[in-house]
Design a protein around this nucleic acid. Structure first.
Length: 531
RNA sequence: GGGCCCGUAGCUCAGCGGUAGAGCAUCUGACUUUUAAUCAGAGGGUCGAUGGUUCGAUCCCAUCCGGGCUCACCA
């Protein structure tokens, strides 16, 4: 990534920037001002994203971190303040059910309701199931170069970081229950507690009512699974907060200033906002982004397997293109299906290409600025992915052949541009392998066609590999003319494409032969005739 | 049904009070040794609908229509 030095922007430029990360940054700035935090500019501003370690990181995880980072960088540019991004793993949550498709199902079944950090790793490579997934999360985020600090709920609870907040919840118990109870079903109303003790006997996270509370001592009394009444402190990891209260408590304990969440959590955010106020804190700034939907506008669900996965996206396009997808209108439900990938990839490069010619707020509104955290690359690809797909359609997915074409068509391209284009060839090659090759249909030649193609192959061999592309092209035409196509050369080419390439259309034969090699092209033809 | 969000050219989106924009796609022309590419140009929108505020609304307000999420438990 030979990105140029970050460009300088004036306060006027920044004030005029309208891209949504700047709007969000302004909301955050207003929040800090409201709290008087603008008077302590050395105060570090905290951004947070959440992660549930009962499963691997996925495209939503990427989206949340990518988008939060976009707001973070916009905020830094706007205020010059220091920031941190915490990636918080809810690894103390009880395992509600055994995730399907995992090894050691029976073993996992014995650990239901226990904190994920105490469930053994079903793959046996890490300290616990949660540790395994936490490691996956970190590798996942590192792979994209995100700047973040990983934080484990278990470690935080055990370290005492949440102690004051837990005690605070006991102190404000009634006010908190007043918020929560109306939102609960009748059955849950009876047993609800914002604090979940962890059974000292079984290690399970208990969803039981609190029989007694002593805020002064920081203690609670509850009934353990065997019916015994237990009195114990809430601090030091002996208990944890339940969802919503947990979120609110975390904001308070960690001083979170900004966190976004999916639209499905709109109500949870509202409630958690009320709770954090009751606890004496202030809700973070943020907004609810829309979920992704599939081609038919249906919600993407992992079990249904509709939509596409992050692995699929990265098979056919770059991480930067996925970032662009995340940048685009996060408040509208985005259709996430295969067809958007090539298009998004090309749009990404168009934005990169445009960036150097843009100034001030225009540049700040360019998605490339946000995708690259203020430092878009200087060089863009000189050939579009769409064009490469066309080429791949014609000449197959050989990266070296594709690279040859790129150099042929863009003789003036700089090394940086060529590098950008070359990176696209691997995606094009996979696209070819998965979507084009399986659909190829090679037509059988007629006797006349066979004679013409045989003659063409012989002629190409005769010319050899050292001739110019014009000579190959002329030879192709001459052969066609000599075999009855002088009046309709278009048909001659159709013959070549349908029989040799298995496609209705194909490459310009002269340049193709030059790049692919006359002998190799001849062999291609002969192989087709032998099919 | 209540709440929240979205609805601007075929597609993806920008514009957010002053007689509609971009990219891609489409079409036309140039080149013609096909296709692609390249260059030049064009078409395409009653800005979801209807009312209201305003000298003036895509932009503000109301209602409606369409789509998404959410309203037992869990996170």
């Amino acid at each position: 990534m030979n990105a140029p030095a970050a460009r300088h922007f004036s306060p006027e430029d920044i004030a005029a920037a309208k891209a949504w990360p700047f709007e969000e940054a302004r909301k955050l700035e207003a929040r800090l001002k409201r709290l008087g935090r603008d008077r302590n500019p050395d105060d570090v501003v905290i951004f947070e994203t959440g992660y549930g370690p009962s499963g691997p990181p996925h495209i939503g995880t990427f989206g949340e971190v990518a988008r939060t980072t976009m707001v973070r960088r916009a905020f830094e540019l706007m205020t010059g303040r220091k920031t941190r991004l915490i990636s918080f793993s809810d690894d103390m949550d009880g395992m509600r059910k055994v995730p399907p498709h995992l090894p050691n199902q029976e073993m996992l079944g014995r650990y239901l309701q226990k904190p994920l950090t105490t469930v053994p790793d079903p793959w046996g490579s890490h300290q616990s199931f949660a540790h395994h997934n936490n490691a996956k999360l970190r590798a996942f985020l590192d792979q994209f170069g995100f700047d973040y600090e990983f934080m484990s709920a278990t470690e935080q609870y055990k370290s005492g970081k949440f102690d004051a907040t837990l005690v605070r919840v006991l102190e404000r118990y009634d006010a908190l229950m007043e918020i929560m109870l109306p939102t609960l079903g009748d059955e849950r109303k009876e047993t609800y507690s914002p604090i979940l003790p962890i059974s000292p006997k079984t290690g399970r996270v208990l969803y039981v009512p609190l029989l007694e509370r002593d805020a002064a001592k920081g203690e609670i009394v509850f009934e353990d699974e065997d019916g015994e009444k237990i009195r114990m402190p809430v601090t030091g990891g002996a208990a944890k907060l339940q969802w919503k209260a947990d979120w609110a408590g975390r904001w308070l304990a960690l001083g979170v200033d900004y966190e976004m969440a999916g639209e499905d959590l709109t109500e949870s955010v509202r409630l958690s906002n009320r709770i954090v106020k009751v606890l004496g804190g202030e809700p973070p700034a943020g907004f609810n982004f829309q979920l992704f939907v599939d081609e038919d506008g249906k919600k993407i669900s992992k079990t249904k397997g509709n939509g596409i996965s992050i692995e699929q996206w990265l098979t056919y396009a770059s991480p930067e293109s996925l970032s662009l997808f995340m940048f685009l209108n996060p408040k509208a439900a985005k259709k996430l299906y295969f067809d958007v990938i090539p298009k998004t990839l090309d749009e990404y490069w168009q934005h990169v290409e445009k960036y150097p010619s843009q100034e001030g707020a225009k540049a700040l509104d360019n998605p490339a600025w946000h995708i690259h955290e203020g430092n878009p690359p200087a060089a863009a690809t000189p050939v579009s992915f769409a064009m490469l797909l066309t080429l791949v359609n014609a000449v197959g997915g050989e990266p070296d052949v594709l690279k040859g074409f790129i150099r042929k068509y863009r003789p003036g391209a700089s090394p940086e541009e060529l590098a950008a284009a070359d990176a696209l060839t691997q995606y094009a090659a996979r696209y070819f392998r998965d979507f084009i090759e399986p659909k190829r249909q090679y037509r059988q030649p007629t006797d006349q066609e066979r004679a013409a193609l045989t003659a063409l192959a012989a002629r190409l061999r005769e010319i050899g590999d050292e001739a110019g592309e014009d000579e190959y092209h002329t030879a192709t035409f001459d052969t066609g003319k000599a075999h009855g196509y002088e009046k309709n050369l278009r048909d001659w080419f159709a013959v070549i494409y349908e029989i040799v390439f298995g496609q209705a259309e194909g490459p310009r034969m002269g340049p193709f032969t030059k790049i692919y090699g006359a002998g190799a092209t001849a062999k291609l033809i002969e192989d087709a005739l032998a099919r």
